[in-house]
């Protein structure tokens, strides 16, 4: 089962410079583990204390997984998963 995962600029050092990679899995976490097995280092940038990092957004097709199960959100063959770092900051 193949899902296309779009990788943001800052994480491409973990995918040999690739903008997107193919991965397999039934959930977002399984996809991340599959990519991690091929390209070490990505998971630590996305997952903290077994949860998705607060300032990383992951979308399955158009849906932010934060509202659909987080790391347990389901994915299926042909889905597009997009990883985008939040654009955020503040005065403090």
């Amino acid at each position: 089962m193949a899902v296309t995962v779009s990788i943001p600029t800052i994480l491409r050092t973990h995918t040999g410079g690739e903008k997107s990679v193919e991965a397999s899995g039934k959930t977002v976490l399984e996809l991340i583990d599959d990519i991690e097995a091929k390209h070490g280092g990505l998971k630590a940038r996305l997952v903290k204390d077994e949860k998705l990092h607060r300032f990383v957004n992951v979308y399955v097709n158009d849906e932010d997984v934060r509202f659909s199960g987080g790391l347990e959100a389901e994915v299926k063959d042909g889905d597009t998963v997009t990883i985008l770092p939040a654009v955020a900051g503040g005065a403090r």
């Binding site: 957004n57 979308y59 654009v87 955020a88 403090r92």
Partner: peptide, 12 residues
């Protein structure tokens, strides 16, 4: 007044 964040849908 002390924090900003792009909306996640807008960001995508």
């Amino acid at each position: 007044p002390t924090f900003y964040e792009f909306d996640s849908g807008d960001l995508l």
